[in-house]
Design a protein around this nucleic acid. Structure first.
Lengths: 206, 206, 206, 206
DNA sequence: GATGAATGAGTGTTCATTCAT
DNA sequence: CATGAATGAACACTCATTCAT
């Protein structure tokens, strides 16, 4: 399942959504297959017919959703863009939108990122390497270094920019966890994000 | 326990160390009280005599270790220092040293930071607010804004600096998880850290 | 199935072989119909189309293989022979040969013999009575009692001879389970068997 | 448990008896820990507190009961006896008595003997080697070979005697499974046993 | 005839928590 | 204070059997 296109997409979707939600809310260990089948409206047996173990379900789901996530990003991003701020801004906007549309998806990917359960940690890391190794570098491979001021180590500057946007996203998400989803995607947030962009441009660019 | 000074400090220490280790390695849900009492060499009964539930043990431990952690930082930091890079650098160095000496402590605090189990998430957040709300602002309350170039939003610049150091620390820790502890605290790391300092100083300072 | 001649003999054979193997290795309860269909390369549905339950498959298989086994014995045995040692020796040799050729068959029949699962025990016993009741007595009905020494209870002597060969066979099989099948049928074994024959002849015969 | 004397002998006994019965009636795989705890009147948890798995329970039980069984035999047997028929007769009588008193015990040991479940087969064999290796040879080490007729291979004769009594016991037990326990230990059986003794003595002894 | 997805009761095992000693 | 035996609900997973296709 997940790897090949399936006719019974509707049931597949129900499993994906249910598992995503339950894992996102509880982490690997606490998430119970009982909760997943209940949420998906399927029987215990069929879950283990598709996935031979909870672990396999978790890892398949991670791989599937990571792929899907990357795909959604690349679908909408302008690959000709060579300004790093513009690239990261586009990514941020897409992430925010995805979060509004599929909050569980993002929450699941975040929770996988920080999962420490030894039962899955190693495999998660292995999958992550395959994915991000390629995608991260692809995203930033095309940057126009000519825009940076002389004397600036461009590689490190990119890191600083990346960490800034990451930190900002985390900060927003921490705030968001106490809001309703409806309030999250706002002009205010983008405005604040842009003020960071401005600060860093003023500092790093010619 | 933990709040009041206890005569039986030796047993208290054994519990702290055992619980820290087991929670750090497994997260809240997967950590079993059996593993903790075994590691600590105490009986099941006495653990639940001191702490009325696993949850209370977890939260008390978090509060205790957070306090201890903050204390260790403040003990060694030069509170007269007004240069933000110097402050953060000091904090970073202390963190690295603590990690070498008490790896479980840092791993526990990190795992708590990312814990999503609904059974403890809310209380963890509440405790965190109490701690960081005060300590973070105290650390940075004294910053000399005069060093920043004109037109720079100092508050945001501080955030950028903070996120940079945080991102750097995470990056190092990810690398470190595949090294032996002995190899972690090295001149190389500090040198690289300093190159980020230099980059940011060049960009933000007059 | 099994009772009537079937056109699709090839599929029938695959089921027989698969079920024999899986039941032989695991006993009734532990043997799973999944393992059988997988081994046979057939679908779940068709197995339950042919046999309405696992129990029926097991009992039919037992009956079928018992019949086949008896048939193979009677096919090759000299029915004119009236010396009990010669008869039992012939049977033993045929058994050894069958075991080399169809180890699963013998292992299955042995495992059925000792099966204690209440779900099948009664029916197994009933089938066994039908078979051995007739075949055992037929085999020994023709014995030449005149060869035995006076004063010997011939019926009991036959029992002793039978138990001896049975005990010997079990002993060899226990040894054999730690050997490769290739090493089992050997002159050594027959020589040892003959030394028991000699001992009993010397003791029971005139 | 089982290895050391326990104060709570009464509960231990309930577990032993319950497990013996359930395993005896169903074999390893089919026996359910649910049935055992119900029969013993204990909770699920405490069973797994004493024995970390069903497998460990099974093997411990086998070791314990084998020991106990051997002990009961050696306690009552006359170790000075040098006549093999007398020795085997004594053992048979004790076995029959034990079977009347503790039918589950004997049934359990028999079922273990023929257990083929790969999950326990190897360990069972290992335990059996430890036990029977020593006890069987001890029992027969003292035999008076002078009583046998010249030309008789004494070692093989002993095997024949042993297999005869074993075969007889199996035959009786097969009959017994369709009788009530009350009818089993009877003069008739011993009389028949003695007629086999007589036959073999007449044949093997001077 | 033939498939294999689907069911749900059943399994062995874990675990926070209690309580008699 | 201190112990660890005891509980029972919850867990991941299995499996004979059914049935729509």
């Amino acid at each position: 399942m997940f790897k090949t296109l399936n006719i019974d997409t509707e049931k597949e979707d129900r499993i994906i959504n249910a598992a995503t939600k339950v894992f996102a809310e509880n982490g690997y260990k606490r998430a119970s297959t009982n909760a997943i089948v209940k949420e998906a409206g399927i029987s215990k047996g069929i879950l283990f017919h598709y996935f031979k173990s909870k672990k396999e379900l978790y890892l398949s789901l991670y791989e599937h959703l990571s792929d899907m996530f990357a795909e959604k990003i690349y679908d909408r991003i302008d690959m000709e863009e060579r300004d790093i701020f513009e690239i990261i801004r586009q990514v941020s906007v897409i992430k925010f939108e995805l979060f509004s549309t599929y909050p569980d998806l993002i929450n699941f990917l975040n929770s996988v990122f920080h999962e420490i359960d030894p039962e899955v940690k190693n495999e998660v890391d292995k999958i992550r390497e395959n994915l991000t190794g390629s995608s991260f570098s692809k995203l930033f491979s095309n940057i126009d270094a000519g825009k940076f001021r002389k004397g600036i180590d461009v590689g490190k500057a990119i890191q600083v920019i990346y960490w800034t946007f990451e930190g900002f996203a985390n900060q927003q998400q921490a705030k968001a966890s106490s809001m309703s989803v409806a309030d999250i995607y706002k002009e205010d947030i983008l405005a604040e994000l842009d003020s960071y962009t401005e600060l860093l441009k003023k500092s790093f660019y010619k």
